[in-house]
Amino acid sequence: MSKNDADSVSFPDKNHSDLRADCEHCFGLCCVALYFSASEGFPVDKNAGEPCLNLQPDYRCCVHGNLLERGLKGCIAFDCFGAGQKVAQVSYGGSDWRRVPESSNQMFEVFLIMRQLHELLWYLTEALTLQPAHSIHEALSSMLDRIERLTYLSPDALMDLDVATQREDVNRLLLKTSELVRSEARQGKRTYSKRQKTLGRGADLMGADLTRVDLRGANLRGAYLIAADLRGNDLNGTDFIGADFRDADLREADLSKSIFLTQAQLNAAKGDINTKLPASLIRPRHWCI
């Protein structure tokens, strides 16, 4: 990327609008690049690099309107964080994988790399909105700038990028952000019960009844919340980065001040019109059915 290119980079806004999927400007990359397993809520078992059987010539999904009725929870939950349109329109300048088949395999790999970078941008953008972390906002802003510029690298340069190192560097800042936010959320919180002491990063809470557990300021990074009951819970300051929300019950829960929650997590969960969400996230359509 040249200096002029770098100077013209448009950074994500605080509402995450640049980090939302825009399928109209993508080439159905998620429907081709990803490995599918029917047992995980996708149409069929499919190898990475093979088009989904429901992908049409115009790159639209022919069953997108009734994914829920078909039980395609994997498709419902997936979110590319806007990586699809970035790869299609920026990395490859609008040349799709059908017209330029010699670039297809590289394009699919670049999409997977870009998705990771855009996920990091999502978390960093959110972190900059969190007032308890104001003391490290400068470091967060600098890191966001660094990661955003990486997304404008050429496809060849992206293929050579050490994404793991980038994730480690970002995660150190996100951990510090989490500590600051959770510390403030825990102020005045009652003493942990025996049940609360079992909570923490990577906790196995599959099917757990958490309706009466005080989760304010809890560290649930990477927690298994599959089919967990969180109805009516106040989740102020709860860190949900990487948590598995498949079929978690969020009806009437207050997630408006939880941190590092993504659209994909919500899409995989159950909720209703009374579930309170962060301003950056959209209420899943199937919650209102």
Rank of each mutant, 00 (worst) to 15 (best):
G49C: 09
P51L: 02
C52N: 08
L53I: 14
N54I: 04
N54L: 06
L55W: 03
L55D: 03
Q56R: 13
P57S: 13
P57V: 10
D58S: 13
Y59D: 12
R60L: 14
R60W: 07
C61T: 04
C61R: 14
V63M: 14
V63Y: 09
G65K: 08
G65L: 12
N66G: 07
L67T: 02
L67N: 04
R70D: 06
R70T: 09
G71L: 08
K73S: 07
G74Y: 05
C75E: 09
A77I: 04
A77H: 05
F78C: 07
D79T: 03
C80D: 04
F81L: 06
F81M: 03
G82H: 01
A83Q: 10
A83N: 05
G84W: 02
G84K: 02
V87R: 00
V87G: 00
V87K: 00
A88C: 08
Q89I: 03
V90M: 10
S91P: 00
Y92D: 08
Y92H: 07
G94W: 06
S95Y: 08
D96F: 08
W97V: 04
W97C: 07
W97N: 01
R98C: 08
R98N: 09
R98Q: 14
P101H: 09
E102S: 15
S103I: 00
Q106M: 12
Q106H: 01
F108D: 01
E109T: 08
F111S: 04
F111D: 04
M114L: 10
R115V: 05
R115Q: 13
L117M: 10
L117F: 08
L117E: 01
H118K: 07
H118R: 12
H118S: 06
L120Y: 02
L120Q: 14
L121R: 10
T125P: 00
E126M: 05
A127W: 00
L128S: 06
T129H: 03
T129R: 05
L130N: 00
Q131S: 13
P132M: 11
A133N: 07
S135G: 11
I136K: 04
E138P: 00
E138T: 13
E138R: 12
L140I: 05
L140T: 03
S141T: 11
M143V: 02
L144A: 10
D145C: 09
D145I: 09
D145A: 03
E148F: 01
E148N: 10
R149Y: 07
R149C: 12
R149V: 02
L153T: 12
S154G: 11
P155Y: 11
P155T: 07
D156Q: 14
D156V: 11
D156G: 07
A157F: 06
M159E: 14
M159A: 13
M159L: 15
D160F: 05
D160R: 12
V163F: 03
V163L: 14
A164N: 11
T165Q: 14
T165H: 15
Q166H: 11
Q166Y: 06
V170F: 01
N171H: 08
N171Q: 14
N171G: 08
R172G: 07
L174W: 02
L174F: 05
K176E: 14
K176T: 12
E179C: 03
E179M: 06
E179Q: 13
L180N: 01
